[in-house]
Design a protein around this nucleic acid. Structure first.
Lengths: 141, 141
DNA sequence: ATAAACCTGACTAAAATAGTCAAGTATCAA
DNA sequence: TTGATACTTGACTATTTTAGTCAGGTTTAT
């Protein structure tokens, strides 16, 4: 059980963006250099973030990206959702119409994974981008 | 972010075993049939569970497996640990001596993943096999 | 005009997953 | 004592996912 790099990079990039947000659009090139993430990969990630209206793009020279909402209104859960970083604990939840493991009924652990998903999602729904930036700054001081 | 089948199967199999535990050893063949899990795969899983002393084996005819401790003393965290179902949220935690992403310092999201891991592990440390069996039975009644 | 920066889709190497397969050994029951 | 049942182990493999790369655009400030 682990997060993918895509989810982690998305959070890193948005934290980076949030810090410089009020001045100018931030270019992916800058984020790439500061955070050590491949530029091509960042472009894929930001394409998704834009479609979910988490960021806005500014094209052309001096362009880049800006947050589309206030940092406190962007929750971790929104970010992960945008880049398809889902908390799908197990396959049996994929098509819930059928049962689990090709059977007609739910598997005996089904309730457990439901609980686990809720537990994790609660964490993601509480944390905002603002929290993360503040917290990171404080710990460094 | 998802669990692997190995972790899920381990829990399913142990719940199955816990229900019949006080009577006779339970054969993997029975578990395989009841839970719809490949027998060969179960053997791999139980080999690991045995090494971590979560189950005991009884060889020969009428043999099978029994729990090695009381169901209430087997926590989810023990089971996942036995089958290498780790909660390693991100790679940057792998070798913590180095920084993240090949850099010298920790990445800006590092504290976040620490928090997340603790959050998830708390859940696993609370739940015992006994809880799971009871809960599953109650919900079905 | 031209360079910076966004935009898109196709492609791919490497790793992880979810098993299968083969060849055993131990024990009980008839 | 011989079969059947069931545990034991290690090697192997197809499939899927991940984590990118690559190539070719379009847009806009200067």
């Amino acid at each position: 059980m682990k997060l993918t790099s895509k989810g982690r990079y998305a959070v890193m990039a948005l934290m980076d963006l949030a810090r410089f947000n009020n001045i100018n659009p931030v270019s992916l090139r800058d984020i790439s250099l500061r955070q050590g993430i491949s530029l091509d990969y960042l472009e894929q990630i930001f394409s998704k973030l834009r479609k979910k209206e988490i960021v806005q793009s500014v094209r052309g020279t001096q362009g880049g990206y800006v947050l589309n909402r206030k940092a406190k209104d962007i929750k971790l859960t929104n970010i992960f959702d945008a880049v398809d970083e889902k908390v799908k604990t197990v396959q049996c939840k994929k098509d819930s119409k059928k049962g689990c493991n090709g059977k007609a009924t739910k598997c005996i652990t089904h309730n457990l994974w439901d609980e686990l998903e809720n537990h994790i999602n609660n964490f993601f729904e509480e944390k905002s981008l603002e929290d993360l930036v503040k917290n990171n700054f404080e710990k460094r001081v």
